[in-house]
Amino acid sequence: MERTPHAGAGPVHVPLGHIVANEKWRGSRLAQEMQGKVKLMFEEGLALADFYLSSRYCILYITEADLVAGHGYRKRLVRVRNSGHLQGIIIVEKTQISEQYFPEVQKFTVLDLGMVLLPVASQLEASCLINQLVQEQTREPSRNPFLRKKRCALSEPSLVQTVQQIPGVGKVKAPLLLQKFPTIQQLSNASVQELEEVVGPAVAQQIHSFFAGPH
Score class of each variant (00 low, 15 high):
residue 150 K to C: 11
residue 93 E to I: 07
residue 39 K to T: 13
residue 19 I to S: 03
residue 4 T to I: 07
residue 93 E to H: 15
residue 32 Q to K: 13
residue 139 R to E: 15
residue 161 Q to C: 09
residue 86 L to W: 03
residue 190 A to L: 07
residue 151 R to M: 08
residue 179 Q to S: 13
residue 129 L to M: 14
residue 45 G to F: 11
residue 125 E to G: 09
residue 143 R to H: 12
residue 206 Q to T: 07
residue 134 V to D: 03
residue 205 Q to T: 05
residue 2 E to H: 10
residue 182 P to G: 07
residue 92 V to K: 00
residue 62 I to K: 00
residue 113 L to H: 02
residue 118 L to I: 10
residue 99 E to W: 09
residue 188 S to M: 10
residue 137 Q to R: 10
residue 60 L to N: 04
residue 215 H to P: 02
residue 114 G to E: 07
residue 86 L to V: 06
residue 22 N to Y: 05
residue 68 V to W: 10
residue 151 R to H: 11
residue 39 K to D: 13
residue 11 P to W: 02
residue 40 L to T: 06
residue 147 L to Y: 12
residue 77 L to Q: 00
residue 191 S to W: 10
residue 125 E to F: 09
residue 161 Q to G: 14
residue 163 V to W: 02
residue 109 T to M: 04
residue 56 R to F: 09
residue 122 S to K: 04
residue 7 A to M: 05
residue 87 Q to P: 00
residue 170 G to S: 09
residue 177 L to I: 08
residue 142 S to A: 11
residue 21 A to E: 00
residue 65 A to H: 12
residue 164 Q to F: 08
residue 195 L to N: 02
residue 166 I to E: 02
residue 122 S to Y: 10
residue 172 V to R: 11
residue 17 G to E: 13
residue 16 L to P: 08
residue 78 V to H: 04
residue 155 S to P: 04
residue 41 M to D: 13
residue 202 A to K: 13
residue 133 L to V: 06
residue 50 D to A: 06
residue 144 N to F: 06
residue 196 E to D: 14
residue 63 T to V: 08
